[in-house]
Design a protein around this nucleic acid. Structure first.
Lengths: 341, 341
DNA sequence: CAAAAAATGATGTACGTACCTCATTTTTCT
DNA sequence: AGAAAAATGAGGTACGTACATCATTTTTTG
């Protein structure tokens, strides 16, 4: 099998290599007639740029950075490991990735960090940060200065023009609701809903999706107000304990945030999880174990490895002025049961 | 950021480029001492082969072929489209893929085709074929003649040394059972189980996984004997009709084969699908629509795009004598509900 | 119709690696 | 010690493309 090169293309088009180069790289001083001729030859012989040759010639290291929260539990750890792993396996591809962890409680700090980035140091940025106007503006400005941006797992409003990697959180909440509803059978009762914080748009959207499905299809179930743990054990104990005192008909629990460990451990002390349906987000060593010993019934997950690789592929494509292969880059809402772990 | 080249490596190791080349490519006439010296320098400066340069130099088109069944419905069509799409988008990578469809009812024909392949025409083969000794032997022989093989979605016994792309079918069946069981609530009754054929190991394993979970966890449910449609509408009508006459307590349906259309259309005529739980395999335009209008409750899917790309990545890696990145290549058992489509 | 402008051709270099040949040095063996 | 063998060095070529420079031809303009 012979793969046509620029030389073959020149011959087929009846022009010189120099002209082929002018057409392929959009250089000036080529007549429209010649452009058409070359274009026709491209179609005819099926010419495709040899990526290896282009990359070799460019021979530019691509430096990407993930901005992730400083505080977090197992899922965060997994994300970081995935970035490190990708960094290693993509070195031969001239792709480098690292992680910067910031205190997401302070939007100005985050915005300042983003603003302080020197575009000549970095080709692209994958950002996971709660919504906030200063952060959004800093992202916009950095993007205008030529750094490619991917919104990573968590999107800022009004930045739809930027690439996003992650799931539709409304659909994720709806999926959780469907499982809680169906798994509860014909039982009647309340659903406890726990989040780290309801300030993030992720949680809000998940909650909306959850309520929509429960209200539409499971009138026997009543979703309770969201409890916010702020990631603190003592607070979690207090508010969950409080709710359990006032409410003795709990048939299901939905933990909306990605770190289920604290809430589950707290609830365990007061409630027999075997009897109720528990759905959590994100696969971690903890949630996996909980699934296996029946403490929880399902995990709604977005694969962190996929997410990291997808973000890097998109950044790489943008850096090379290619269009990302969108079909490959959508992140699925995975449903994990004991059986398909 | 500076990426070290072989030249830097030679300098760091205090040897010539020629010696570096001898070490990197395992050529003879290098003392162990020098090998160690170069190896140490590789670690120290973090040298990694530039893939683009290697590929450019090799500059060999990789030709891969998918062997798929001749008969099939929507899922098969989707697979073929995915191969075609991959073929287009991987041309710039010197990777070419095509499809050969064979009549899987005739193992000798399949084996003959495989045996007739000229290793100088093809670098790798992805095979989806029912189990059979002649086919298995033909695969083995072709592999020994230097053609890389991936068992695609369907595995042959005793060929564990070959790469496999696809899901664990026992787990897939178990997952289906969990959903049928949980979604049925506290109802008591029978589960209709439909397959195109029970001769394939896929179906057998799915059935085993299904029964294991139902028997262990859902004593209110009774799985019926498998019905085989052979992909024929008239036969499907007859055997499904037969079973419905003798059995009036059906609360669930599990369609094990990848083409759910015929069975669903037949059952629809006799049963109100809204009242019972229906689980099928594989996402197709039909199953998607059925999920949306509530004819079915869940789809157990293996993403055909992932599967095709994964097979090609593995074949490419093997052709270049690299190890495939196994973490990335496992195919998940996806559970699709109306909410997370 | 000549001069200016635009279009095209001819040719060279570079990217990093693999593979080759030939010369030279070092080690091993008798 | 001397010959044979092994190890190492020096240097060139090629892969396909991008990006130069300069020469030459064709077209446009005044």
């Amino acid at each position: 099998m012979i793969v046509p090169t620029t030389k073959d293309l020149a011959e087929a088009a009846g022009v010189s290599l120099a002209t082929v180069d002018r057409v392929l790289n959009d250089r000036p001083n080529v007549s429209q007639k010649t452009r058409d001729k070359v274009q026709a030859a491209i179609e005819q012989i099926g010419f495709v740029r040899n990526l290896a040759a282009v990359n070799l010639l460019r021979n530019k290291p691509y430096r990407f950075r993930f901005i992730l929260p400083k505080r977090g539990d197992l899922y965060l750890k997994e994300l970081i490991q995935q970035v490190e792993h990708a960094n290693k396996s993509l070195r031969s591809d001239m792709t480098f990735a690292d992680v910067e962890q910031l205190d997401m409680g302070d939007p100005h700090l985050v915005a300042n960090y983003i603003s302080s980035i020197d575009p000549s140091d970095l080709d692209g940025l994958a950002i996971m940060a709660p919504e906030s106007p200063p952060v959004r503006d800093a992202i916009s400005r950095l993007n205008e200065r030529g750094v490619h941006i991917v919104q990573f797992l968590s999107a800022q409003e009004n930045l739809e023009q930027l690439d996003f990697v992650g799931v539709n959180n409304y659909a994720a909440g709806a999926t959780a609701a469907k499982i809680v509803g169906k798994f509860s059978g014909s039982k009647t009762g309340s659903i406890m809903i726990i989040s780290e914080t309801m300030l993030s748009s992720d949680s809000i959207e998940r909650r909306h999706g959850f309520d929509a499905v429960i209200n539409a299809r499971f009138e026997n179930l009543r979703p309770l107000p969201s409890l916010e743990t702020y990631g603190e054990v003592s607070r979690a104990k207090r508010i969950i304990g409080n709710q359990l005192e006032h409410c003795d008909d709990i048939v299901g629990v939905y933990i909306m945030s990605s770190e289920a460990r604290i809430p589950i451990e707290v609830i365990c002390e007061k409630l027999n999880l075997n009897d109720i349906t528990v759905v959590v987000h994100e696969r971690t060593p903890f949630s996996e174990a909980a699934l296996k010993n029946d403490q929880i019934d399902a995990i709604i997950a977005q694969n962190p490895g996929h997410a990291v690789r997808s973000a890097l592929r998109i950044l790489r494509a943008r850096s090379e002025a290619r269009e990302p292969n969108s079909a490959q880059e959508s992140i699925r809402i995975e449903i994990l049961l004991d059986e398909n772990l």
